[in-house]
Amino acid sequence: MNSTTASKPAAVASKPERRKRPIDYKDWTFNFFNYLILALLVLATIYPFYYIFIYSISDSIQAQKGVTFWPAGFSLEAYQTTVKLPGIMDAAIVSLSRTVVGTLITVFCCSFFAYLITKEELPFRKAIYRFVLVTMYFNAGFIPWYLTMKTYGLQNSFLLYVLPTALAGFNVILIKTFIEQLPASLEESAKIDGAGYFKIYTSIIFPLSMPIIATIAVFAAVGQWNTWFDNYFLVESPKLQTLQLVLYNFLNQSSNLSNATTEQLNRGDLVRTLTPQSIRMAITMLVTLPIVLVYPMLQRYFVKGIMMGAVKG
């Protein structure tokens, strides 16, 4: 990758060289360093992911001597063992469910509420809108949050993952702005046909707002997949552990794990060829992979989202 990007500025610079000589030399150096630095940054960002990947598919014992560019040997044993670790599959299901359910709830609440806010007929419209928006700017703090969630009985409950995130002021602003740009005539004609507000929302507003809703859904989904502090502080039940927290506990208990592995080693169990380091890499891969795989496809939504936010803010 590095060599292709480094040769690129040379190719670009060689063309105009014939026309204007004095500026071009400067231009060439500029390009060269610009591309070089950016290429190094790309490398510095990608390499840790790549390293984890090649380590996780390396032969565990050979990898201990260090891997740099290529996997050392090849083995999928780390994955096979990881998948069988107690709690991993449950955690994957919990993480997946909170991502799906949480995203659906956020998308529905934010978009339906935003639609209601666009209705002139809604009494106290401005006040209600402000009431929700202001929540973006304050935060009661840790202990009040903790005690409130406990009072609601959300401790050790799946609802803790998906309810508090239902309404986000920022999302409401984005969707409301989008809905206001839609032609009012569509809604008018549906109204004349006798459609109620909810019907108009489901059959006209929601489908037409798809571009912004997709953006918000993507943000919400990534947020859900990555959130772990609610799990960390308020959910002890092993049935409700998220993948993120399992990974975290695993990283912190690496010493315990290596003890366990040595024990198994001594007993001559199956794990003879596997180091805790390999298992750690495999788990990290499993938690990271969904984001890394889905991310490039969704990148345009992300960019669109922040651009809209920038225009608003």
Partner: peptide, 17 residues
């Protein structure tokens, strides 16, 4: 694309990396 990627991973994954 590459430089934005780390924004979308959790701090736990950053820690793991």
């Amino acid at each position: 694309t590459v430089s934005t990627l780390p924004h979308y991973i959790s701090w736990i994954i950053v820690y793991a990396l």
